[in-house]
Design a protein around this nucleic acid. Structure first.
Lengths: 342, 342
DNA sequence: CTGAAAGCGCTTACAG
DNA sequence: CTGAAAGCGCTTACAG
């Protein structure tokens, strides 16, 4: 089976390659009759133009890079599939989504950013919870490759986020209003270059949380904060143990680091004979698929994943099409979901 | 910022483009000194060869297509990340993984298979729970584009599967040995073209399940089977309601359709005042991340996702490299995980 | 409305 | 060991 080429189609249709190309690219100076004839021949022979030839010649492409630390995270998947949903929505799935994962490795992150920037294989890049340095941002700006940050905010790039600060505020306010007095907070890294790295989302959630405590005059224990190095169940268990070791007696823990860590905290607390929410209220973040079915069902701050994905896609496409004059920063309202754990 | 080209590197290094190209492609007739010099210049100038030009000229590429009904499924993600893990493992992340999703639409499936086959943008394709017809398989064989089926088996393609039959057998055997008498079975579609479609995995799991019942002389109720049209919690709830409406009193249900449906069954049963596993034993399939933390923790047949992903990747790479004389069919042992729900 | 020609940025025989 | 030349399969001014 030899691959069919445009020249074959041209021969079959008794026209030039130029004309075939114009049909494929929807030029409007081809008469209906010719167009239909050529389209039929293309269809009948299963001809698909070589994308590499097109890309090379046009100097452009329809690829969107999706970059994250690990493809398998709950969040990643939701976003990926939202982008995908929109790709179907546009009628044709013209946009190839190429997932890149950094394996949480700074060197790989830099390498990928460079590869995409200088390799020019992609016309936009959506980066989840990535902290590129300002130099990279400026280079992307100069190269006119739109960069859409998620779970991060920088002035010189687009961004799409849940209103994390508000989410943190909601959690604290709810705990305060339900009479909790002594609260623990578990969240992602707060400082660039530290062992835990820096998560914009974590910083915002903590800020909102602290803000509420201050507003309502609730004192923070000096030991109230633990940082995760990982967003897993095991990490939640480990950090709760740490609280126990330190001897602090909390009556509530807000896991700004997500539902998985909240689940870990609950499991660990139960092992210590604590009842939830009786002895300890636990609030998560995200509203992961299983959150409603845990024991007890998890009270959490819901991130509207579909909306986040939709917006990321929309911003990417608008930016590719040159419709964005300045950087867009989109903030999506979180939703507080009360279940049984708090 | 103009994109750097090979000719620029050649000029800087005072050699020809041929030589630069040979360095990039690891030809062994370039003396160490020249090679190092050129590599330095490439690095220093952030030069990345145009992949579209390479692909066009070489007539080959490093892309692996990953096709599934929906990117966001638990299974999909595990496989994707396993492939990704392996990509990192190979030292260089040379393989681009391009996810395609069919949206569970037959027309899109055919379109994507054709696009990949005739468009030649991909050097192997991993297809999850897809039922291409024989014609497509033969065309892929002829075109020498390796096709690796997962959750499916066909003689004329490679395949990587959990031993689903054994999984079904294990579940039934466990239920029988723990004294259950009347068992329900929930699984995916068993017939091509039917409302529920055909799932090879479902058929195998059912076969193994039935086999065990027969072996131990346990009678099947005429109403024991329900098919899912969806692998969700809601679907599990719906089907359990159906069992209730039909008035069949089971003391066990095996959800061959996965842990999510099992969760739905448990929730629904609890609403009817049944205790689990007292009144009803429930067994799932997959061992999803949250399975261990449900209420009660779910007894399930674990699919070793990492192994499945690893094998899929290995087969794809071996096939691309022409190392496979015949079609490989890999079967991975499932693992029966006893928790509290059965 | 249609076609001939140039060229996108590489790789690969081939000659030396 | 190195370079000149051809060509991968398209698209796009341009001429007619």
């Amino acid at each position: 089976m030899k691959k069919l080429m445009m020249s074959d189609i041209a021969k079959l249709a008794k026209v030039s390659e130029s004309t075939v190309s114009k049909v494929i690219n929807n030029y409007d100076d081809i008469p209906e009759k010719t167009r239909v004839k050529i389209q039929k021949i293309i269809k009948a022979n299963n001809y698909y133009p070589s994308r590499s030839a097109q890309m090379l010649r046009k100097g452009s492409n329809d690829n969107i890079a999706f970059m994250s630390g690990r493809i398998a995270s709950h969040f990643t998947v939701e976003i990926l599939s939202a982008i995908e949903r929109n790709t179907f929505g546009t009628g044709k799935y013209v946009h190839n989504i190429i997932p890149y994962s950094t394996n949480y490795n700074r060197k790989i992150l830099d390498e990928i950013f460079n590869k995409i920037l200088y390799g020019r294989e992609v016309s936009a890049i959506v980066a989840l919870a990535m902290n590129p340095d300002l130099g990279i941002l400026l280079k992307y700006k100069e190269a006119k490759i739109p960069l859409i940050l998620m779970e991060n905010f920088m002035k010189n790039a687009h961004s799409v986020n849940t209103d994390n600060r508000k989410g943190g505020f909601m959690a604290a306010e709810y705990l305060i209003k339900s009479g909790r007095k002594k609260m623990g907070l578990i969240c992602g890294g707060l400082k660039m270059g530290s062992k835990y790295g820096f998560s914009y989302a974590a910083a915002e959630r903590k800020a909102g949380f602290d803000e509420a405590l201050e507003l309502y005059g609730v004192k923070r224990d000096s030991q109230y904060l633990e940082l995760v190095s990982d967003y897993t169940i095991a990490e939640g268990m480990k950090l709760f143990e740490k609280f126990m070791e330190k001897g602090v007696k909390f009556d509530a823990v807000f896991c700004a680091s997500g539902d998985m860590t909240a689940l870990g905290v609950m499991e660990s607390a139960k092992k210590h004979g604590m009842s939830i929410p009786g002895d300890l209220a636990v609030i998560g973040f995200d509203d992961a698929m299983s959150a409603a079915y845990l024991n007890p069902p998890l009270t959490t701050v819901r991130q509207p994943m579909e909306k986040l994905g939709d917006e990321a896609f929309n911003v990417a496409v608008a930016a590719i099409e040159g419709k964005l004059k300045s950087f867009r920063h989109i903030l999506i309202e979180p939703e507080f979901i009360v279940r049984k754990s708090a």
